[in-house]
Design a binder for these strands. Structure first.
Lengths: 340, 340
DNA sequence: GACTGGCACTCGCTACAGTCGAGTGCCAGA
DNA sequence: TCTGGCACTCGACTGTAGCGAGTGCCAGTC
């Protein structure tokens, strides 16, 4: 079922034109806009083959062709080169990210930047706690039976949680607790902590044990399991570009999906090192997003990955450009994190 | 230009029917569905007057009437009673909010709850720092020239910020700094701090002064001015209900407005004590939201207000129900905060 | 065998005419 | 002041016709 070079060129041309114009593209327009060196009739034959193979389809007879998800996939995999960023884009990225003051700030700036550059919905995952190491644990007494636990991770993430102690604890005991948890936990990965935390309880003095038990269960429960991941989102207004033609007329399912953190994490959180993942339409496991494509990648200081980021848009998107932007932003953010 | 009781009843009926059916309501349908005790012809005369006064209008000549923003305003001010919540709703609120573990948790649960109950976009402002008192300031050394400042407010809010010190500071100096800032600032309103913070610098020992200067400027700049307000949002998918008839066909401007924190704050942040504010369509100062209505109120422990919350929806919304829900949720959240 | 020009065909889109009916405004009369 | 009646308006819907973009196929050419 060979697709010879010209057929591939035709497919590429169809994808490019369709992305640009948002209108089904016909054989005549194709030969006019691209130097294919053959006549419309020939192109039509090629199109027939491409359609048979499932790479393009006709919205209705007497209309031009539109790429299918499969067609986009082939385009992304074999027919496109990642576009180099324009100097203006590079500058925009740098300008946007310098002056970030804070992890929160970095994440917010990043997600806005991504949304602006790609003109799509951007998603940025905060550095995953599971991939962070504990830098410091602070215990702040709020009352005799209440403690605020503040965890600072090496990725810059800060999480806090109020702990209700089983009974009153004296100030010097809090100091002891603080010393012990820091001694034991600083420098370790949170994902590795369960045994460590258990040990904390076992090794506590009888006096501290009840407090330590509560504290450690909160550490595990809240910081590791529940709150674990955070997400920032921007650019939802970009969904309305393309006047409801994308997303088969209803933003509903998309907006619903974007409200679910779990869904977002699934989209961008499973990043593998230094790969850019592209999910096109149907390839998406989330039903609500069957009409959308997602481009995502991991980021982190140096070559490690601490979180994911990406964008979501119509299947009809500029893949080469989007991929380039997502990669570039991820790289810059990584550098930024490395500086801290 | 007296609007007698019957004309007001007609307006009320029109608003209620239109909100329920989303279709222009005609004189015949009106007398059938409401016991107005008069004939359609009479109602038509009343309608003509109401239209002349600008309370209703006809989308086109041979269609029924639709309330104008002005009509809704009159309805809200004089023609409607706040609906009591159903027991199911009460239960939903309680169920949703118990078990909240954290301020973050409370806010997230609240915003989701509001969105779910009102079936609209919900906005919740975190307790305003300007209205909070400092409960504790923690300084955590990250390196010899870096400090993490963690501020815990009495409202439960926790803000942190990385501070780059002008030079290395010894551990015991950090302890001193911590003691001093806590002594001076704990218990004071952040909005009142500028003079206090200035005093901090003036009174510092020469040794601590440079560090204190940086620290205090960060306290002012970041915690008070910049980061000041935080906002949680939920239910954007609800904008797509009513199939694009609301919002004159485009969600674009709405989604854009919702991305701007400043805008959201303006919407719900200017709450006055124990008032529920209703902004209808045109009354809204933000151009993008001229097709929407906002119902908002303040919340806080006891009778104090620490922040605002509210919902945004089409002008064609169930005002009595929405107002009731917003108030009830605000009250519950206030109680929850009071417990801490 | 691959490509091309030509031709018949399909079918969505637009315009137009006609009908229907909901809803109105107005008026005369109770 | 209210009501029933009536003429009128105008959007929604239906059906028809013409247009044109685009196709598939086929016979002919290189």
């Amino acid at each position: 079922m060979g697709l010879d070079d010209r057929k591939l060129a035709v497919l590429r041309a169809i994808v490019e034109d369709y992305v640009a114009t948002q209108e089904p593209v016909g054989s005549k327009a194709l030969v006019e806009r691209h130097q294919l060196g053959v006549s419309p009739a020939t192109v039509r034959n090629d199109m027939a083959v491409l359609e048979e193979e499932g790479y393009i389809r006709q919205p209705h007879t007497s209309a031009g062709r539109v790429p299918t998800d499969r067609g986009y996939r082939l385009f992304v995999d074999r027919l496109s080169r990642v576009k180099p960023l324009s100097p203006a884009e590079r500058r925009a990225i740098e300008r946007f990210l310098v002056g970030a003051v804070d992890l929160d700030d970095v994440v917010h700036r990043t997600v806005r930047l991504l949304a602006q550059l790609t003109r799509q919905v951007a998603v940025v995952q905060y550095p995953s706690l599971a991939r962070s190491k504990v830098r410091h644990l602070e215990l702040v007494p709020i009352s005799t039976t209440r403690l605020m636990v503040v965890m600072i991770a090496d990725t810059g993430r800060v999480e806090q949680r109020l702990v209700e102690l089983p009974g009153p604890v004296a100030a010097e005991d809090v100091t002891d607790l603080r010393r012990v948890v820091n001694e034991k936990l600083v420098g370790s990965r949170l994902s590795d902590t369960p045994p460590l935390v258990q040990a904390l309880v076992d090794e506590s003095t009888p006096q501290l044990r009840p407090a330590m038990a509560t504290l450690s269960s909160v550490l595990l429960e809240t910081l590791v399991e529940r709150h674990e991941e955070r997400i920032a989102l921007a650019g939802t207004a970009n969904l309305t570009r393309g006047g409801l033609l994308d997303f088969q007329g209803s933003l509903r399912p998309i907006l619903e999906a974007l409200e679910e953190e779990v869904v977002l994490l699934k989209l961008i959180g499973e990043a593998e090192p230094s790969t850019t993942r592209v999910l096109i339409g149907d390839e998406n496991e989330i039903d609500n997003l069957r009409a959308a494509s997602v481009v995502s990648t991991g980021y982190g200081p140096g070559s490690t990955i601490v979180g994911g980021l990406g964008v979501l848009g119509p299947t009809r998107m500029d893949y080469p450009g989007t991929i380039a932007t997502v990669r570039a932003v991820a790289r810059y953010v990584g550098e930024l994190l490395a500086q801290n």
